[in-house]
């Protein structure tokens, strides 16, 4: 293998470990700062020079965050993103199957169109969508975000699932079809179990994309009760000060669950994220 044998102190002190240390420090420092400041009282947060650790650690910020509407934002986000992800996956499963397996005409143009839409900037459709939703009375509601989130994340999910489905052996389907399975049952019972990693990947991407989405959420649901986490966090603060302590407590509270999930599922997440990248 390529790693040369290192002996004695060189096993610990070497360019590789040094590089790794630099990477860890650079990545972790802002995160450390976020966590530390979420436990600082206001006067320590604006202290100069800044203290490396809180002198009088307090959980007050966390209480303030949840008392100040953050719980609502969190609920809104979870609801919108979960529903959007479920809808995206169910629609994309069938579309992906059709594009991978059926001899339907016009697959090429459809795939190209999907590709373009998946990178199409949200700003370009913001106003018409706002207007359409305004006419339908949907603004400042959950569907106001779920509907566009589904539409904008479907193309990419279809792509991923289609590529996974291409690698499912044909024989399975043929057997199912000889057994007299309907196409819907074939997809649900034969194909779906084979592309579970694909579903996982598409799900992770859809959920993260919707979880972070800001522009549409800011425009369609700016009313307090329907703000998602990014909107709530962006509009936080008053003229005179941004209450960073509360903001960071909220930030830790939303990042920690994701970080823990990433930690627990790191193998499948990394595998999922990279699968397409490498296999093509």
């Amino acid at each position: 293998m390529r790693t040369r044998e290192r002996r004695g102190w060189r096993r610990v002190v070497n360019p590789v470990n040094g590089g790794a240390l630099v990477m860890v420090v650079l990545t972790a420092m802002p995160l450390y700062w976020l966590v530390m400041n979420s436990f600082k009282p206001p006067e320590e947060i604006s202290a100069v020079p800044p203290g490396a650790v809180p002198k009088a650690p307090t959980g007050q910020n966390y209480g303030d965050a949840f008392a100040g509407g953050f719980a609502t934002y969190m609920l809104n986000s979870v609801l919108v993103c979960a529903v959007a992800t479920v809808i995206v996956l169910s629609l994309a499963t069938f579309a992906g199957y059709a594009l991978a397996r059926t001899p339907m005409r016009g697959r090429g143009p459809v795939m190209v169109a999907l590709l373009i839409i998946s990178v199409y900037p949200a700003i370009a459709v913001l106003v018409p969508l706002y207007l359409m939703q305004r006419q339908l009375g949907l603004l400042n509601s959950y569907p106001a975000l779920i509907i566009p989130y589904v539409a904008f994340n479907l193309p990419f999910a279809i792509w991923i699932l289609r590529n996974y489905m291409l690698s499912v052996p044909r024989g399975l389907e043929d057997a199912a079809s000889i057994d007299g399975c309907s196409p819907v049952r074939t997809v649900l019972q034969v194909i779906l179990p084979q592309v579970r990693p694909g579903l996982f990947t598409a799900g992770v991407f859809t959920f993260t994309a919707t979880w972070m989405e800001f522009l549409m959420a800011l425009t369609f649901n700016s009313q307090e009760g329907f703000r998602t986490i990014p909107v709530g966090m962006a509009l936080f603060g008053t003229v005179f000060e941004v209450p960073y302590g509360t903001l960071f407590a909220a930030a830790v509270a939303v990042t920690a669950p994701i970080a823990i999930l990433a930690l627990v599922f790191r193998r499948s997440v990394v595998a999922g994220l990279t699968a397409g990248a490498v296999k093509g």
Binding site: T27, I229, M233, L247, A251, I258, A259, V269
Partner: peptide
């Protein structure tokens, strides 16, 4: 796992952190 955290962070949240 550590490197997945910045990626999984909401962009608005990291923007606020850097703003601070």
């Amino acid at each position: 796992a550590l490197m997945l955290i910045p990626w999984s962070m909401i962009t608005v949240v990291s923007a606020q952190l850097w703003g601070y």
